[in-house]
Design a protein around this nucleic acid. Structure first.
Length: 373
DNA sequence: TCTGGGGTCCTAGGACCC
DNA sequence: TCTGGGGTCCTAGGACCC
């Protein structure tokens, strides 16, 4: 028998802001969506009373809750708190998986002798997150990961839902199919057309249930793709000139290259993402014969992809660069190039060190951004 | 003064190889 | 001269999640 605890932090970013500034407690705190542009990334429960939720455009949130306290995103701060949460989780099991910055699954299988029954352990974990970090969270305990996640969602906020072994199907059956992670608006519509409204309806059709609802206890969720590192930005003002776009592209490349080097990874595939002002969005990628983590090489590829694919004269509102097919070691190619790479590595190590010491703008490069012509 | 930024996963078609 | 499938890699597009 397997046991999983799914932990989901309540209004995570907003809660962190309230910990750092206790005068915000109980108030409608809204993270993200300032300046009218952008969207809400987190809203305290006081703010949700006004109908505000994450992913809502900022101007709309402002309209619903004019007196709301709008704060900018501070990803690094949230990441630090996230690490503290996961450090607590890690004390209860060697098998902890982060699903996102504010959600994780703790495999409690076989931890009973050390910490007691799964439910007791879950209660203790949630209490500790609250008492040690000041952060509210919700949890779900069940014999499968999916059921545990659904249970945690039902527990929100500040709730712990326990699904005893053997009662999984009874627990799930009355719930709407859109509660299943992975079932979004499109799939929901398709399922409705088949007359499937509840998870119970879905369980009646094994071939569909198998596809959308993985209730297996032991299977590791498949991880086919290795992870990717990307950076994208919505432009302050739309651009039509490729040379101007290349300036932005270079900044994105520096960020992506820096992160690759920090993690000692080389990318074999590079992608440029383009969004026009009419919101038509597409991506173009290229696989390299030899993987790279160097700004200059990355830039050459993505700027080439940009120039080949951006429609002349169309205004672009977003640009993105991402690196995928990541590998930790190198490339197979002649010694001569290896020498070249060694010197590259030295150079970029120096650049990264300077940036770390003196800030992101400490070291510029001969890039389109800095060209005078 | 519409619609962020970070991702994962799945599918499908074409190239290419055997 | 016509004709197989199977497998893998690459690219593009899209659904979905937080």
């Amino acid at each position: 028998m397997s046991w999983y605890l799914h932990i989901d932090m309540d209004a995570f970013f907003a809660s962190v802001e309230q910990v750092l500034d206790p005068s915000l407690k109980g108030k409608p705190v809204i993270v993200g969506g300032r300046n009218g542009r952008g969207v809400v990334t987190s809203a305290s429960y006081a703010a949700r009373k006004f109908g505000i939720h994450s992913a809502m455009p900022g101007f709309q949130a402002k309209k619903l809750c004019p007196h709301g306290i709008f704060l900018p995103n501070r990803r690094r701060v949230y990441a630090e708190f996230s690490a503290k949460v996961f450090a607590i989780l890690g004390q209860y099991s060697p098998e902890v998986r982060a699903l996102s910055i504010d959600e994780g699954i703790v495999d409690l299988t076989g931890t009973e002798r050390l910490f007691g029954p799964p439910l007791k352990t879950a209660e203790q974990i949630i209490r500790r997150i609250e008492s040690e970090l000041g952060l509210p969270s919700s949890g779900g305990v069940s014999t499968s990961r999916v059921t545990a996640k659904i249970a945690a969602t039902l527990g929100k906020p500040r709730g712990l839902v326990y699904v005893p072994s053997g009662s999984e199907a009874d627990f799930l059956a009355p719930l709407a199919v859109e509660m299943i992670p992975g079932v979004g608006p499109k799939t929901h519509k398709t399922l409705l057309q088949h007359g499937i409204k509840t998870i119970g309806d879905l369980l009646q059709k094994p071939e569909l249930a198998e596809r959308y609802l993985d209730l297996s206890e032991h299977d590791e969720p498949k991880r086919r793709h290795d992870h990717s590192i990307g950076n994208e930005t919505t432009l302050d003002k739309p651009l039509k000139e490729t040379t101007e776009m290349e300036g932005v592209l270079w900044e994105l490349v520096e960020e992506v290259g820096g992160r690759l080097r920090k993690e000692s990874l080389y990318a074999r595939c590079l992608t440029v993402k383009i969004r026009y002002t009419d919101f038509h969005t597409f991506a173009r990628s290229r696989t390299l014969s030899s993987p790279t983590c160097f700004d200059k090489e990355i830039f050459e590829v993505v700027s080439d992809l940009l120039r080949q694919n951006v429609a002349a004269g169309r205004a672009v509102r977003l640009l993105g660069v991402s690196a995928s097919a990541l590998q930790s070691t190198g490339w197979q190619e002649p010694l001569l190039n290896q020498e070249k790479r060694k010197s590259f590595e030295k150079l970029y190590q120096g650049i990264d060190d300077l940036r770390l010491k003196y800030g992101e703008d400490a070291v510029g490069a001969a890039t389109p951004r800095n060209r005078t012509s």
